[in-house]
Design a protein around this nucleic acid. Structure first.
Length: 268
DNA sequence: GCGTGATGTTGAA
DNA sequence: TCAACCTCACGCC
């Protein structure tokens, strides 16, 4: 779940469920206990996302959350069920509660510390004001593969393993192509496509990347069977036929992450 | 019950 | 490059 679209959706949901009202804040697990006590009963007045980072504002104080690989949020209507001992942070408003489990980061930060986090992140396709030129400057000068660059949050913020694999497929780009060998128009098209795909991801709370003409129904195939939630071209489809050309989708490990691509549709 | 893997990041070697 | 961290669902006994 946790790519940028998930975090923007969480910011939106926090805004709708809690913003503008006093919130009960606790840490049943204990690891956020002192900070929770400091915030308990105060008004949450902002919820923002930048890439995979979530920020919940309480006046001058911010809660910085990063889900990492395992972190998960659970929302529900009050009354909240008894918290289990893995709930790091629980927010309870008038009508909803939110439980956070397993995050890489859940910390109280100042405005200045928050600013420092923004400064080390690249532009985020989901933030309308962010400038793709900043990413292009890095990419166009880089001898690193585009597959690695897309996962580097200093270059682009919010892309994870699924969006990386899928956007490269949709643009017919070999993951091993070097950043400096991309054209400006290829990057502009990828950025625009990421913005569209990720906005849809926020709306549906899942990643769908398959164009209508390639869906299993349109191609007369059985529906995809995978548990990550959305309809995709190559992510976790190793050894299955490419939805466009029927070649076997390939996979390999690159920088300790699984990479998936179609060797025929994606060319240097 | 146990072992495995996963949409992520950091810091040490 | 590798280990560490965090959680839970799944397959297989």
């Amino acid at each position: 779940m946790p790519e940028g679209h998930t975090i923007h959706r969480l910011a939106q949901d926090h805004g709708e469920c809690f913003a503008g009202h006093p919130v009960r804040v606790s840490s049943p697990q204990g690891r956020f206990g002192e900070s929770a006590a400091l915030l308990d009963g105060r008004v949450m007045d902002a919820a923002q996302a930048h890439g995979k980072h979530l920020f919940l504002g309480f006046g001058h104080d911010w809660v910085h959350v990063h889900l990492g690989l395992f972190g998960k949020y659970g929302f529900g209507p009050v009354p909240a069920p008894p918290a289990t001992d893995t709930v790091r942070l629980r927010l309870v408003g008038a009508q909803h509660y939110a439980d956070l489990r397993g995050p890489t980061t859940c910390a109280l930060v100042t405005g200045a510390e928050k600013q420092a986090i923004h400064l080390r992140l690249g532009p985020d396709p989901l933030r309308a004001e962010d400038d793709p030129d900043r990413a292009w400057r890095r990419i166009s000068r880089s001898r690193t593969t585009i597959a690695a660059l897309l996962m580097d949050q200093k270059v682009v913020a919010g892309i994870g393993n699924v969006y990386r694999a899928e956007v490269l497929f949709r643009h017919g780009i070999d993951p091993y192509r070097l950043g400096r060998d991309l054209s400006r128009s290829e990057w502009d098209a990828m950025w625009a496509d990421l913005a569209t795909l990720m906005r849809e991801g926020v709306r549906n709370n899942r990643i769908d990347t398959v164009r209508p003409e390639h869906t299993p129904e349109a191609m007369g195939r059985p529906p995809r069977v995978d548990d990550h939630g959305g309809e995709v071209y190559v992510y976790r489809r190793a050894a299955l036929p490419c939805l466009v050309c029927e070649s076997e989708v390939r996979t390999t490990e690159l920088g300790a992450r699984n990479l998936f691509w179609c060797p025929v549709c994606q060319q240097r």
